[in-house]
């Protein structure tokens, strides 16, 4: 692409056209650059607003904010531990439930499905990613919760009640419900990114291994091995989504500030407590504590995302380099 374009049209070129172009091109470029800088500005503003809003809480509690379990708006004491715990438990459960079937599904779509079926199923998975969080919340509240209360949780208590994980009463709402809803919500992310990574990694490797007399499963092992960092990246991206997911969790987790060892217990996550208490915050410090939760959430998800994106890029970009190494 040449930048000295006007010179080409010599027969019709007029001096003033060239002069205006000389000024207009840099101006145009500067305008577009300004928009691009805007993306940085937005990120910076998010950090700035969260840090500014959280300042009173940071000053009042310091590091104790993260390790104290005492969240009492009346006494103006704020410790985030129950919410850190709730976020961790629900996200971990979501990952445990979602990852194995999702990797199987991604492999199936990328490598095994007949082309027509694979296209339809991949399309469905993409659509599922567009279902909004509030819809999952409604479903979790009105369908999943009663089912858990009447069928699943009594069974768990009866048969696995000897484990601390499954002690308590069948409420239907709580960590278990939130974990299941989150698992369903993050599934499309894991499936579609893993599928793309497998497609980008696999073709040459698949042919190479099959041509050596590998069965489909043995060939998959090679592909998965090569795609491992990228799939890990997909999982981290999904984890980031699970950590920050708000509405669906708010509707099904029960919203208490307790630390319960049982999955049947209720609790809250960082995101859900912000959604619940923000507009009803009783004091400046209460609001600041909620904003500090947002700051923590932001930090965690940005770090996770940065790592995940690098992994995904490295896997797909790296393979392209390898293929072109000849």
């Amino acid at each position: 692409m040449t930048s000295s374009a006007p010179a080409i049209g010599r027969p019709l070129a007029r001096a003033d056209v060239r002069a205006r172009a000389g000024l207009a091109d840099p101006a145009y470029r500067a305008l577009l650059t300004l928009f691009a800088v805007g993306v940085f500005a937005v990120l910076a503003l998010i950090v700035w607003e969260c840090a500014r809003g959280a300042a009173p809480s940071l000053a009042a509690f310091g590091w104790r904010f993260l390790v104290s379990a005492d969240w009492d708006p009346v006494a103006e004491k704020f410790g985030a531990l129950p919410y850190l715990y709730g976020t961790l438990v629900t996200s971990a459960m979501a990952m445990l439930l979602a990852v194995p079937p999702c990797i199987g599904a991604a492999v199936f779509l990328a490598e095994l499905a007949p082309r027509g079926f694979g296209a339809v199923a991949s399309f469905l998975v993409e659509l599922l990613a567009s279902i909004t969080s509030i819809v999952f919340g409604v479903w979790g509240l009105f369908v999943l919760a009663p089912w858990l209360r009447v069928v699943i949780e009594p069974w768990l208590i009866a048969h696995l009640g000897f484990l601390p994980l499954f002690r308590g009463f069948p409420f239907g709402l709580g960590f278990l419900n939130a974990g299941i809803v989150l698992a369903i919500m993050i599934a499309p992310t894991i499936v579609s990114i893993s599928r793309e990574i497998l497609l980008a990694t696999s073709r040459t490797l698949r042919e190479a291994s099959l041509a050596l007399g590998a069965t489909r499963a043995e060939s998959l092992a090679v592909t998965l091995d090569a795609a491992r960092p990228g799939i890990l990246g997909a999982m981290i991206l999904a984890l980031g989504r699970a950590l920050g997911e708000t509405m669906a969790v708010t509707m099904v987790i029960g919203n208490t500030n307790r630390i319960s060892a049982s999955l049947l217990g209720s609790g809250a996550t960082m995101a859900s407590v912000i959604a619940n208490e923000f507009t009803e915050a009783t004091s400046k410090l209460h609001l600041a504590a909620l904003i500090e939760l947002a700051l923590v959430l932001f930090a965690v998800t940005v770090v996770l995302n940065a790592a995940a994106r690098l992994l995904v890029r490295w896997t797909t970009g790296g393979r392209r380099d390898v293929a072109g190494a000849a």
Partner: peptide
């Protein structure tokens, strides 16, 4: 079985992202 008895070399070199030894040993381990 057919593919195991009929070797194939592709247009672009396509070694597995493994060690040299593991590449050659791949089919043997199968």
């Amino acid at each position: 079985e057919l593919r195991r008895r009929v070797g194939m070399v592709f247009q672009r070199p396509n070694p597995f992202p493994k060690s040299i030894f593991d590449n050659v040993a791949f089919g043997l381990r199968l």
